[in-house]
Nucleic acid binder design. Structure first.
Length: 713
DNA sequence: GACCTGCTGCGGACTG
């Protein structure tokens, strides 16, 4: 039977009313499988290929909504995505007379209350709101979600490989436990690495044997142009902005300059260029520190603009799912840190059927150009960096321990251990380890033993009873930026935030009038000229494969027809610079330069291995100047044979790493900042976290074993 | 220089 005929009558009517000529390939396949089986499915297909419908059309046809209770739970990483999907799903559900409820921190309380009075239909939720319910209203979890037939997880790749993902995995397991039957899961994603990674995905959904992947690999044509404009100063080159302006003045564009400060610089300077020549004034900025209402206005503007052109300068806030309408072009300024990120960004343009995607890539620095090329070529080879889920997520365990205890208001040790060791998210953590962590939490008053049962302790109450408890990620302190009562955005405190400084924010220029440290508020007034704002943050890690590809480009003589003349010249120069080494294999050979009184070692490997290598060298007394973008270590001595033999002997066996890591934690407690809950673990487990998440000793050892240093001629 | 994500419950003012 055709997929269309498998659908229920109201759903078929919906499709007819939409005047769809046919179902997309991913929809055909998903409908056949989801209707016929009770397997979990992961639907992988590029953006704007109809994945949401591929999941909901068959689920809505299959589920009996006449039964009591909520039947379908949709989980999304973003509030904005929930709001976006709500409109689509609700329109579909009108045909079935099934109610849809948004449940997140900014959703209406009234709608939530109505759902509690009469639990039914479909609920759209975030992992954090689900967590809050487990902690504060565990009876609502039973009341609302014990009759689920389906759980749909959107943008699942954004959860993979992170603590937030382990958290969600744990919540899904806890949810399955309260379910009277067994719910089926359908996960959606645009960017997941190939077969290697399907194991991670299947594990994530908790039942690998009954989890299948449906993938549509139909490519979308992408027109790419790479350009090089050398950046001499801290500001972006004017010529680059002029070129960007010329190319995009008559279209709808997203620009991704990688950092919030640069996002503001691009928005303000392009707007000025446009003003000068009487072009449109629709230049916006969009990132996490732009006020929410301003961001929503920008999204709304883009969505409703059919004839009017616009340019939004943005960070990864506009990288995921939200359909902001028809975008003609995407401009990326300097390299993305990952291929997945590049794919998502390119996919923002040409969403309309039959339209191709357009990418302008601008590089301002040679290594960034090289990395951009590497990402692009790997993407063309359909390579996406694999992600790995933490095998021993002790930090998430601490959080879930507190959540379970708080939600139970009194639980025995046996039950607590059973709850956590049963949970697939923690399957590699033993009962003994859980017990040890419980003991530690009791010792620091996070838990308290009351007769046979554990409850939250005095110190634990301080942590559990705050808004901040529900998330697995840290957030820095920000000051609100306000002009005459209107909120514009936020800024961190820095040398720049002081009266009379002029700064860009939300694509406009402001003068700082006053700073209220008590109320964490910065009062500003409009100004004519200023500087880009300073933000702090950590650069994301780059995969080893990208660095290897960079070296491969340097030793090949391939020509790239999408690269402009200055870019071509830079690659020629870099190839010449590296021709003094006889590199034969981009996998094992690495350049080692020795000059008068220094050595330069180019590792061409990923951030984690670099970090580990630097730490190990430091342990054997070798101080290095490290440059991540170039994957380069500089040493203040020239004895290259000595350095080569040190590298050969470096491994875990020659360094007492547990002791070394304990020392590191003692001297620099901030290294644990990547983990919000890690600080509440016993030292032994903090060390494990460092080993498993911050460093990569295994990868580093492998790198060193294969390493063949090639000296300059 | 260096991304992003989310958030309870209560009290009180205001609106219809």
């Amino acid at each position: 039977m055709s997929a269309f005929n498998l659908l229920s009558e109201p759903i078929r009517k919906y499709i007819r009313d939409q005047r769809w000529e046919s179902l997309r390939p991913i929809q055909e396949a998903a409908i056949q499988k989801i209707i016929a089986t009770d397997n979990n499915y992961v639907l992988i297909s590029r953006t704007a290929s109809g994945k949401t419908e591929a999941a909901f059309l068959p689920i809505l046809s299959k589920v009996n909504f006449k039964e009591k209770g909520v039947k379908v739970l949709y989980i999304s990483p973003l509030i904005a995505l929930i709001n976006d999907q709500f409109m689509r799903v609700e329109k579909l559900c009108e045909y079935l007379d099934v109610p849809v409820t948004k449940w997140h921190g900014e959703a209406s309380k009234g709608a939530k209350d109505r759902l509690i009075k009469a639990p039914e239909g479909i609920v759209l939720i975030t992992p954090e709101s689900l967590e809050a319910m487990f902690v504060n209203k565990p009876y609502h979890i039973h009341h609302l979600f014990s009759t689920l037939d389906y759980v749909v997880i959107d943008e699942i790749h954004s959860f993979l490989g992170s603590d937030r993902g382990i958290h969600l995995q744990s919540l899904l397991q806890r949810l399955q436990k309260v379910n009277t039957g067994k719910f089926t899961t359908v996960a959606l994603s645009a960017t997941v690495s190939d077969e290697n990674n399907y194991a991670e995905l299947k594990d994530f959904l908790g039942d690998p044997e009954h989890t299948k992947v449906i993938r549509d690999t139909t490519p979308k044509p992408i027109n790419a142009v790479f350009k090089y404009f050398e950046g001499q100063t801290k500001e972006l080159p004017l010529d680059l902005l002029k070129d960007l302006y010329r190319r995009t003045r008559d279209s709808k564009v997203l620009v991704f300059p990688n950092a919030r400060g640069k996002v503001e610089e691009v928005a303000v300077r392009l707007k000025k260029l446009s003003e000068k020549v009487g072009g449109h004034a629709n230049y916006f900025s969009h990132h996490s520190s732009v006020d929410k209402e301003v961001r929503e206005y920008v999204e709304f503007f883009a969505k409703k603009s059919t004839h009017e052109n616009f340019c939004i300068s943005c960070t990864s806030t506009l990288e995921l799912g939200i359909d902001i309408g028809n975008v003609d072009e995407v401009a990326q300024i300097d390299a993305t840190h990952s291929i997945a990120s590049l794919i998502q960004r390119v996919g923002r343009s040409g969403r309309r059927e039959g339209k191709s995607s357009n990418l302008f890539l601008y590089a301002t620095e040679r290594w960034s150009l090289l990395q951009s090329l590497a990402c692009w070529l790997l993407f063309k080879d359909q390579y996406i960096e694999p992600v790995t889920m933490s095998q021993k997520p002790y930090d998430v365990l601490v959080h879930q321990l507190l959540s379970v205890v708080k939600g139970s208001s009194g639980i025995t040790l046996d039950k607590l251990i059973e709850d956590l060791t049963d949970n697939a998210a923690f399957k590699n953590i033993s009962a003994e380890e859980v017990m040890e962590i419980v003991d530690h939490l009791t010792a620091i008053d996070f838990l308290e033993k009351l007769g046979p049962e554990y409850i939250i302790g005095i110190e634990g109450e301080k942590v559990v009873n705050t808004r901040d408890f529900y998330t697995l990620f840290h957030t820095p302190v920000f000051f609100r930026v306000v002009s005459q009562g209107v909120k514009i955005g936020e800024l961190p405190l820095s040398a720049q935030t002081r009266p009379d400084e002029n700064i860009y924010l939300s694509a406009r220029i402001w003068k700082i009038k006053d700073i209220d440290y008590e109320a964490k508020k910065i009062e500003v007034t409009p100004a004519k000229d200023g500087k880009k704002p300073l933000f702090f943050g950590d650069a994301a890690d780059t995969a080893s494969k990208i660095r290897e590809k960079m070296l491969e480009i340097l030793i090949s003589d391939d020509k790239y027809d999408f690269l402009d003349e200055p870019g071509d010249e830079i690659i020629r120069q870099m190839r010449k610079d590296f021709s003094i080494y006889e590199i034969r294999s981009h996998q094992t050979d690495r350049p080692l330069f020795s000059g008068n009184d220094k050595l330069k070692f180019y590792s061409f490997t990923g951030s984690k291995i670099n970090r580990t290598l630097r730490f190990m060298l430091n342990r054997v007394g070798i101080e290095t100047q490290f440059e991540e973008n170039e994957s380069k270590f500089e040493l203040g001595f020239s004895k290259k044979s000595e350095f080569i033999s040190v590298l050969k002997d470096l491994n875990l066996n020659t360094i007492n790493s547990d002791e070394a890591l304990a020392e590191l934690l003692d001297n620099f407690p901030d290294v644990l900042n990547f983990s919000k809950w890690g600080e509440f673990l016993p030292l032994k487990y903090q060390i494990e976290l460092l080993k498993n998440q911050y460093f990569d000793f295994e990868g580093c050892n492998e790198f060193l074993q294969n390493l063949n240093c090639i000296e300059n001629k």
